[in-house]
């Protein structure tokens, strides 16, 4: 069985490799990815939808449609929104099980730490955790 999440991760790694480790270009690229993501409605940017553990504000929502999860995210900073958009791309339209079983290796492979620093990397980790928490919650809902 093909692993859709890993395929997506490989694609991201390939895209980033084109940037050849250039710090400025990489960050511009991350911000560009964020800009492509539609803004969340203001009324959805609630305290409850905030990802805990991020210095910037990141809002994340998840919906279950036909057994698959779709994510909706936004942030008050451009870089964080770009980072969140990468995760949406990786996880979107997968089943809760696929999300829960996924091993997220692309940040390490592209050397994300080097581009965004330790603080933001920790925040990025918190985001990944939040995607998985949503998957757990929605899986429970599926099984009810």
């Amino acid at each position: 069985m093909e692993n859709i999440i890993n395929q997506r991760q490989e694609k991201i790694i390939e895209e980033f490799s084109v940037l050849d480790g250039d710090q400025e270009m990489t960050i511009f690229y991350i911000m560009e990815l964020g800009q492509k993501l539609p803004d969340m409605d203001e009324e959805e940017k609630t305290e409850q939808n905030l990802v805990k553990g991020c210095q910037s504000k990141v809002w994340l929502m998840a919906h279950l449609t036909d057994g698959k999860v779709t994510f909706n995210t936004d942030s008050n900073t451009a870089i964080t929104k770009g980072l969140a958009s990468l995760l949406v791309r990786v996880f979107n339209n997968c089943t809760p099980d696929e999300i829960l079983q996924a091993e997220i290796y692309f940040p390490e492979r592209i050397g994300m730490n080097r581009y965004i620093g330790t603080q933001r990397s920790n925040g990025f980790g918190a985001m990944i955790k939040q995607f998985k928490l949503f998957a757990i919650a929605l899986k429970t809902k599926l099984n009810v």
């Binding site: 710090q23 960050i27 911000m31 870089i79 964080t80 965004i116």
Partner: peptide
């Protein structure tokens, strides 16, 4: 934050 990160770059 975005400005700080970009300036660091």
């Amino acid at each position: 934050f975005d400005i700080g990160q970009m300036l660091d770059a």
